[in-house]
């Protein structure tokens, strides 16, 4: 895919394929083009070149910025989107998501009164409502506490276990290493690497003169070496 914003090239011929039942992590510095890539996959933006092989209707999407109504309660937000998604049983879907996001006791609270992390939980829950065959998550764990992060990955791994193809972006390199089967490294709209976390580790570690203390530091050194 190619995407330009005026003179700025956000994506330079980046290719990506996600397999059913697998988790694919996109990592890279700020402004690398992760959100742009996921937005194109989600059908929010159209690419200037290339194409997406699945229809947006069959793809679930959790945007980086929470997209929900502050003046509706948690349950009302979920119910509204369950209805718009034409869930067979909206109330059951709402109940399921309240449990997943651990927001049952906040169900009657206005979304605007939630903490940043809880708002992100609701944002994720809305994206998961329809249980689509493919799921895109843009930095889903960014605002979550460690326990909630673990719950999220548990749930997403369970979805993948049932055959859902999952693509997520993250700044947490360890998270990518731990949960993803596939890693894509983006920097300045360019795909620097695609492969398994183990392969990435090898590429990073095999760098001549590598003396990094941990994976994250090694990753930063890798980016610097490639000119980013």
């Amino acid at each position: 895919m190619v995407k330009r914003f005026g003179d700025r090239v956000a994506l330079r011929e980046v290719s990506l394929s996600a397999a059913p039942g697998k988790l694919l992590a996109i990592i890279g510095p700020n402004g690398a083009g992760k959100t742009t890539l996921l937005s194109i996959l989600a059908g929010i933006q159209s690419p200037d070149g290339g194409e997406v092989a699945s229809s947006p209707r069959r793809v679930g999407w959790v945007p980086q910025q929470p997209s929900l109504y502050g003046k509706l309660t948690v349950a009302e937000n979920l119910r509204l989107f369950a209805r718009l998604e034409r869930c067979a049983d909206p109330d059951a879907a709402v109940g399921r998501m309240l449990d997943l996001a651990d927001l049952r006791d906040r169900a009657g609270d206005m979304a605007s009164t939630l903490s940043g992390g809880n708002r992100q939980r609701l944002n994720i829950a809305i994206g998961l409502l329809a249980e689509p065959p493919a799921l895109l998550l843009d930095e889903p764990s960014a605002a979550l506490d460690p326990r909630q992060r673990e719950r999220l990955w548990e749930f997403i791994s369970a979805l993948a276990g049932r055959g859902t193809a999952v693509v997520f972006s993250t700044h947490n390199v360890a998270e990518a290493e731990r949960y993803a089967q596939q890693v894509v490294v983006l920097a300045d709209g360019e795909r620097l690497f695609a492969g398994s976390p183990a392969e990435l580790e090898r590429v990073v570690a095999d760098r001549p003169g590598s003396e990094a203390r941990d994976f994250e530091a090694a990753f930063v050194a890798f980016l610097r070496q490639r000119g980013h």
Binding site: S39, A42, P63, L68, L84
Partner: peptide, 10 residues
């Protein structure tokens, strides 16, 4: 509210 993008995705 950022809902627009979610809504117009079908």
């Amino acid at each position: 509210e950022n809902a627009f993008r979610r809504l117009v995705r079908g």
